[in-house]
C-alpha cells in the first residue's frame, strides 16, 4: 500500500501518461456517464458545431485526473475537486496527468492538479483538497 505520508510540499505524485485518445474510449465514457452529446463520438456532429473532429468529454479528462488519488483511499479521500476546462482534447492526443502537493494544513493536503496534452498545453487545471483521516 502506497502512502501520501512521505510526500513533501513541492513534490508531485507519479505522473500518468494516458494512451492516445481513441473513439471507443469516448464511446465507453458516453455510455458509462450517460453523456451522449454527439460531439464526443460522431465526427459529423462535431463538424456541425465548427470542430475539426470529435473531442473528449471534459468530464472524461477530469475523471481520469482523479485516478491519481485512487490508491490512497485508505488514508483519506478527495474532499474538494475543482476544475477549469481550458482546452479541448482531440482523438489521438496524449494526455498526461499531474498532481503537485502545494500545501499541507493539518489534515488537508492541497494539490495543484492538471492534465496536459502532447504539446505541453493544459487541457484542464484545478485543485484537489485531500482530506487525510486522523488515524
Amino acid at each position: 500500500m502506497s502512502s501520501l505520508a512521505e510526500l513533501k510540499v513541492g513534490e508531485s505524485l507519479k505522473e500518468v501518461q494516458l494512451d492516445p485518445v481513441d473513439r471507443i474510449t469516448l464511446i465507453k465514457y458516453a455510455g458509462a456517464s450517460g453523456d451522449y452529446n454527439p460531439i464526443h463520438t460522431i465526427d459529423e456532429e462535431a463538424k456541425k458545431v465548427g470542430l475539426p473532429g470529435i473531442i473528449a468529454h471534459g468530464m472524461w479528462t477530469m475523471g481520469n485526473l482523479g485516478k491519481l488519488f485512487t490508491e490512497f483511499y485508505e488514508e483519506g479521500f478527495i474532499q474538494d475537486y475543482t476544475i477549469r476546462f481550458k482546452g479541448m482534447v482531440f482523438l489521438n492526443d496524449v494526455v498526461t496527468l499531474q498532481a503537485e502537493l502545494a500545501e499541507e494544513n493539518e489534515n488537508i493536503l492541497t494539490f495543484h492538479v492538471r492534465a496536459v496534452n502532447q504539446n505541453g498545453n493544459e487541457v484542464i487545471k484545478g485543485d484537489i483538497l485531500y482530506h487525510r483521516y486522523a488515524s
Binding site: 483511499y73 479521500f77 478527495i78 474532499q79 475537486y81 475543482t82
Partner: peptide, 17 residues
C-alpha cells in the same frame, strides 16, 4: 439545448466518499 454548450468549470465537495 443538448448541443453547443461549453462546460467551463466543475467542482465537487464531499463529506465522505
Amino acid at each position: 439545448p443538448n448541443k453547443g454548450l461549453i462546460h467551463g468549470e466543475q467542482t465537487y465537495h464531499y463529506e465522505r466518499p
